[in-house]
Computed example of a mutant assay.
Amino acid sequence: MPEHAPPPGSEDPLDLQGVIPPTLTAFDNEGAVDYEQTAAQAEFVVDRGAHAVFPLGTNGEFPLVSGDEREQVIKTVVAAVGDEVPVITGVGAPGTQETVEHAERAARAGADGLVVVTPYYFPLDHEGAVEHYRQVAAAVERPIYVYHIPPRTGNTLAPETLQEIAAIDGIAGLKDTSEDVPWLGRAMADSPDLTYLAGSNALLYAGLEIGCSGLVSSVANAFPELVVDLYEAFDDGDEDRAQQLQRQVLDVLAAFDRGPYMAAVKTALSVRDVDVDPGPLRSPLRRLNDEETAALKADLAELGLL
Score class of each variant (00 low, 15 high):
Arg108Thr: 11
Arg108Cys: 11
Arg108Gln: 12
Arg108Gly: 03
Arg108Lys: 14
Arg108Leu: 06
Ala109Ile: 03
Ala109Glu: 09
Gly110Pro: 12
Gly110Asn: 09
Gly110Arg: 00
Ala111Gly: 06
Ala111Leu: 02
Ala111Phe: 09
Ala111Asp: 06
Ala111Cys: 14
Asp112Ala: 15
Asp112Pro: 12
Asp112Gly: 15
Asp112Cys: 05
Asp112Glu: 02
Gly113Leu: 05
Gly113Tyr: 05
Gly113Gln: 01
Leu114His: 05
Leu114Arg: 04
Leu114Asp: 10
Leu114Asn: 13
Leu114Phe: 14
Leu114Ala: 14
Val115Asn: 03
Val115Pro: 02
Val115Phe: 11
Val115Ser: 06
Val115His: 12
Val115Arg: 05
Val116Leu: 02
Val116Glu: 01
Val116Pro: 01
Val117Glu: 00
Val117Ala: 12
Val117Asp: 04
Val117Ser: 08
Thr118Glu: 13
Thr118Tyr: 07
Thr118Cys: 12
Pro119Gln: 06
Tyr120Ser: 08
Tyr120Asn: 05
Tyr120Ala: 11
Tyr120Lys: 02
Tyr120Met: 13
Tyr120Gln: 06
Tyr120Glu: 02
Tyr121Glu: 11
Tyr121Gly: 05
Phe122Ser: 14
Phe122Asn: 15
Pro123Cys: 05
Pro123Thr: 02
Leu124Gln: 04
Leu124Lys: 01
Leu124Ser: 05
Leu124Thr: 00
Asp125Tyr: 06
Asp125Val: 14
Asp125Gln: 06
Asp125Glu: 10
His126Phe: 09
His126Leu: 09
His126Ile: 04
His126Arg: 06
His126Glu: 11
Glu127Lys: 12
Gly128Lys: 02
Ala129Phe: 07
Ala129Glu: 13
Val130Ser: 10
Val130Pro: 03
Val130Asn: 12
Val130Ala: 04
Val130Thr: 04
Glu131Val: 00
Glu131Asn: 04
Glu131Phe: 00
His132Asn: 02
His132Phe: 10
His132Glu: 08
His132Arg: 13
Tyr133Ser: 06
Tyr133Phe: 15
Tyr133Thr: 01
Tyr133Asn: 03
Tyr133Ile: 08
Tyr133Val: 00
Arg134Tyr: 09
Arg134Gly: 12
Arg134Ala: 11
Gln135His: 02
Gln135Thr: 02
Gln135Arg: 15
Val136Glu: 06
Val136Phe: 11
Val136Cys: 05
Val136Gly: 00
Ala137Asn: 01
Ala137Phe: 12
Ala138Gly: 03
Ala138Met: 14
Ala138Tyr: 07
Ala139Ile: 14
Ala139Cys: 09
Ala139Tyr: 07
Ala139Ser: 08
Val140Ala: 14
Val140Ser: 00
Arg142Met: 10
Arg142Tyr: 07
Arg142Phe: 13
Pro143Ile: 10
Ile144Met: 06
Ile144Gly: 01
Ile144Ser: 06
Tyr145Phe: 13
Tyr145Asp: 02
Tyr145His: 09
Tyr145Glu: 02
Tyr145Ala: 05
Val146Lys: 10
Val146Ile: 15
Tyr147Cys: 00
Tyr147Gly: 03
Tyr147His: 15
His148Leu: 09
His148Met: 03
His148Asp: 12
His148Ala: 11
Ile149Met: 00
Ile149His: 07
